[in-house]
């Protein structure tokens, strides 16, 4: 039991996180406080949801890089629609954003499944199509806090748990945590307790075998990319509520790389339906803690991009080197 635990990537990651948290707490005692933890959860739950989306794509052996474009499209279309209709309703915003996201995801799935194209190349194309279309047909102007419907601001401030500081002021756990928990449980349930989840693993593991075993590949891929779009839609609204500002030009490559970094250090592999949700979440935690404390290690903000790149390269190197050694031991020629 114990030895099995130590064969897992997640175990090592967990210990690294523990050791690093300990180090950070010694350097800066305010790190390990409930308030700081609540803050971290609030600011990183959007990233965690994107990481889960990217992870589901990887499981099916697809690299979907269109999620930042989808998230911004869902967000911007939703907020514009709300302003145009004069409605101030958060559920409607989620509905629009997720519908837009799912539709865009389905577009990806159509090309990937019908023409057996590489997901990366398709999504490289579609993310430009989505983002270009958003800027041409919807608008390029940013929406400021003043114009923003009230529901977003209220959502950003909503807490599910409120605690008091020693001086009597209040702080709390954001409602984002509930949303994230909902996404985690939903994804966990789909992946581990439904046939659909098994078919995602099967398609990622071996396309031909999955096909011959009778899995409906087209339906599986439509679900995978639709789900990625759906989660990106949720993230779009969350991000808007967090920063209270919607700028359609705001699609940063670093967001993409951060998410990929988190997922790959979580141990998910592109070559086969491997990896766990736990690993992905640990990867996100690792990434967030490291990033927040870069300055503490003595690195200026110029190091940020380098650092993310380094984490990706190291993360994938460890993961793939292990499987390479294992394959060689089993005389498997994967080349």
């Amino acid at each position: 039991m114990i030895s099995k635990l130590f064969q897992r990537n997640e175990t090592y990651l967990f210990f690294v996180i523990m050791a690093f948290s300990f180090f950070v707490t010694v350097m800066n005692p305010s790190f390990l406080t409930v308030e700081n933890m609540f803050d971290l959860v609030k600011s990183s739950s959007g990233m965690a949801i994107l990481a889960i989306a990217f992870f589901v794509g990887l499981l099916s052996r697809g690299i979907d890089i269109s999620f930042p474009a989808i998230a911004i499209a869902g967000q911007y279309i939703a907020v514009n629609a709300l302003i145009a209709m004069g409605v101030d309703s958060l559920p409607l915003a989620f509905l629009i954003s997720c519908a837009v996201g799912t539709a865009m995801g389905a577009t990806n799935a159509f090309f990937i499944s019908s023409f057996r194209m590489q997901a990366l190349i398709v999504t490289l194309g579609t993310s430009n199509i989505f983002h270009g279309a958003l800027l041409v047909f919807v608008g390029t102007r940013a929406i400021n806090t003043g114009k923003l419907p009230h529901c977003f601001k209220a959502f950003g401030h909503m807490n599910v748990l409120t605690l008091a500081r020693p001086d009597g002021t209040l702080y709390g756990l954001s409602v984002f945590a509930v949303l994230l928990l909902f996404v985690i449980i939903l994804t966990w349930f789909i992946l581990n307790h439904t046939l659909l989840g098994k078919s995602i693993y099967a398609v990622g593991g071996n396309y031909e075998s999955a096909k011959r075993a009778g899995f409906n590949i087209k339906r599986t891929l439509f679900f995978v990319y639709g789900y990625i779009g759906f989660l990106s839609g949720i993230m779009g609204v969350m991000h808007l509520s967090l920063i209270r500002y919607s700028n359609p030009n705001y699609i940063v490559d670093t967001e993409l790389l951060r998410v990929i970094a988190a997922v790959v250090i979580g141990g998910a592999r592109i070559t086969g339906g491997s990896g766990t949700l736990t690993g992905t979440l640990l990867g996100v935690i690792m990434m967030v803690i490291l990033e927040k404390n870069l300055v503490l290690i003595g690195l200026s903000s110029y190091w940020h991009q380098f650092f993310i790149g380094l984490v990706i390269v190291l993360g994938v190197s460890i993961t793939y080197y292990q499987s390479k050694r294992q394959n060689r031991r089993n005389l498997l020629f994967t080349d």
Binding site: W303, F306, G309, G315
Partner: peptide
């Protein structure tokens, strides 16, 4: 994809 970030970072 990883070295893309790494090289730009350097």
């Amino acid at each position: 994809l990883g070295t893309n970030g790494l090289f730009m970072g350097i």
